[in-house]
Each structure stands twice: as structure tokens, then as C-alpha cells.
């Protein structure tokens, strides 16, 4: 069948990369609008990492200092880990928030548009990553309080790594959200998945001298490969001797091979792509 479509009557262009990019951008912008409007969320999500850093960090630190005797305080060690915990909760929430979009119908508005589901979810993941990074900027400002220098290169590297981690965890949140129909079951699900990721990532304790079962679990946790580069960047800019560094920042070792930071970042990138692809696949199947 032939069709005659008068082009001047059509305001909507045919598909293309530019159209998809515009769609992803506006989804990202909406996340920003929501973030700015929701001040209580900003404040409450800062409380948890600050408690971890200053209460848990100081409390456990006093216990360690007597025996460790290193030049690095426990709060210094904890600083990148707390950053990761902040990203973990903020980004997971950003991802799972799509359950609310479904509940209030707005997800439908997004998914019936003449753009691919991937563009919508990329916009969401970028939004979650940006929100997580913005939250961390407040924590980064406190670096001096825990003995971490304000080195511009270090700060830039940390921001980049935090953004990447945020993208990965938001994608994970989207994967989880794909099949959740009820808003009430969203938060428990996040807790169930995020808490083990946090404890098994090396965010709260060094990965050296662990019993085998725990070492295995930390090594299969993708979060580990996102946390370690962050700590590595911080320790690169600290004035520490090799023994202290080996104790607090032993890195990730596969068998006898110490995994380079570059490879860790590549693993994180691969996880970003895989999780997002999985989310797209699951959303296409269910909506």
C-alpha cells in the first residue's frame, strides 16, 4: 500500500541518533528537576554516610589505632568506602524510583514515545549517576577533616569513578524495578540486594587476610571493582609507607595476579553495559 504523507503536516522527525539522544537528555533533565525539588531526600541521604564516617569510623578507629600504629587513621581508610556507600543507596533508589513512575502512569508516557526503551533507561541511569555524584560532592568537601588532601587531580578522578559507580548501581536498580509492580515491595527489595553488596565490597574493611569464603564473595561482587579504584586514587595521594598501604589498601588479587586498577575500571564499565542491557531486555518484555 502506498502512502502519501504530507511532510509539512509532520512535526516529528523519523528516528535517528539525535532523536534518541534528545529523549535520553530530557529523561535526565527530569531526574534533575526532581532532585532539586526534593530537598528532604538530599539531607536524609547525607545523614547515613556521615554517621558511618564519623561515628563508626571514629569508634572503630580508636580500637585499631592502638594495634595498627600506622600513619593512616581509620576514618581516612573509610573515606572512599563511605563515598561508595552513599552512591550505592542514592543510585539504587534512583533506579528503583521507576516503580513510582509506573505506579503514577508516567512510565507509560515514556514508553509509548517513538524512541527506544534503551534511550529512556540510559537517561534514567545518567540521572541516577548525576544525583549520586552531586551528593558525594558534599562528602568530598569534608576530605580535609579525615586527612585526605584537596588535590584537584585526585578529586577529578574520584568524581569520574563515583559517576561510573552511580551509573552501574542505577542500572542495577532498574533491573530490579523491571518486575516490581507494588511500590511497597520496592524498598525491601533494594535493602535485600544493596546491603550485601555494601558489606562484601571492601567499603568498610580492607580486603587483606580474609577467610576464603569471604574472599570469594568479595571477589565476585561487582561493587568491589568499583570501590577499589576509588580507594586506590585516595592512597596514591597520601603520604604512606608501603607496609601501611599493603595493610589498608591491598588491592584485588586473582590467585597471584594483582588486578590493575585499569582492569578494575574496565570490569565496572562492562557491568554498566551488561546491567543496562539486562534492564532494557526486561522492560521490553514486561511493559
Amino acid at each position: 500500500m502506498t502512502t502519501t504523507l504530507r511532510p509539512e503536516a509532520l512535526h516529528v522527525p523519523e528516528s535517528g541518533l539525535a532523536t534518541e539522544a534528545r529523549a535520553a537528555t530530557v529523561v535526565w533533565q527530569r531526574e534533575m528537576i526532581r532532585f532539586v525539588k526534593d530537598r528532604s531526600r538530599i539531607l536524609s541521604s547525607l545523614a547515613q554516610p556521615l554517621l558511618f564516617l564519623f561515628v563508626l569510623g571514629t569508634g572503630l578507629g580508636s580500637l585499631l589505632n592502638s594495634s595498627a600504629g600506622g600513619s593512616v587513621g581509620f576514618t581516612t581508610f573509610l573515606f572512599p568506602g563511605v563515598m561508595a556507600i552513599s552512591v550505592l543507596f542514592t543510585a539504587a533508589f534512583a533506579g528503583i524510583s521507576i516503580v513510582w513512575d509506573r505506579e503514577f502512569g508516567f512510565l507509560r508516557e515514556m514508553l509509548v514515545a517513538p524512541v527506544s526503551t534503551a534511550s529512556i533507561l540510559v537517561g534514567k541511569a545518567l540521572g541516577g549517576a548525576t544525583v549520586a555524584t552531586l551528593q558525594c560532592l558534599v562528602l568530598l568537601a569534608l576530605a580535609g577533616l579525615v586527612g585526605v588532601p584537596y588535590d584537584p587531580l585526585m578529586l577529578l578522578a574520584m568524581i569520574g569513578l563515583i559517576f561510573l559507580m552511580g551509573f552501574m548501581i542505577t542500572s542495577l536498580g532498574l533491573v530490579l524495578a523491571a518486575r516490581v509492580r507494588q511500590v511497597q515491595s520496592a524498598m525491601p527489595l533494594v535493602q535485600l540486594v544493596i546491603t550485601p553488596l555494601m558489606f562484601l565490597s571492601g567499603a568498610l574493611f580492607p580486603l587483606s587476610g580474609l577467610p576464603t569464603w569471604l574472599a570469594v564473595l568479595t571477589h565476585v561482587n561487582p561493587m568491589t571493582y568499583a570501590v577499589e579504584p576509588l580507594r586506590s586514587v585516595v592512597f596514591d595521594h597520601l603520604d604512606v609507607d608501603a607496609a601501611t598501604r599493603a595493610r589498608f589498601d591491598p588491592g584485588i588479587v586473582w590467585g597471584t595476579w594483582p588486578v590493575p586498577v585499569g582492569v578494575q575500571i574496565l570490569i565496572t564499565l562492562a557491568c554498566c553495559v551488561l546491567l543496562l542491557a539486562l534492564a532494557v531486555w526486561r522492560f521490553r518484555r514486561t511493559e
Binding site: 512535526h11 534528545r22 514515545a113
Partner: peptide, 14 residues
């Protein structure tokens, strides 16, 4: 208006 702008961007309106 933000809802409408969102829609226009999603549909790639000029």
C-alpha cells in the same frame, strides 16, 4: 508546561 516540554523532547518536536 514541564510535562509538555518533556513530551516535545521525547517526540523530537522542532
Amino acid at each position: 508546561e514541564q510535562n509538555l516540554r518533556f513530551h516535545q523532547e521525547l517526540y523530537g518536536v522542532d
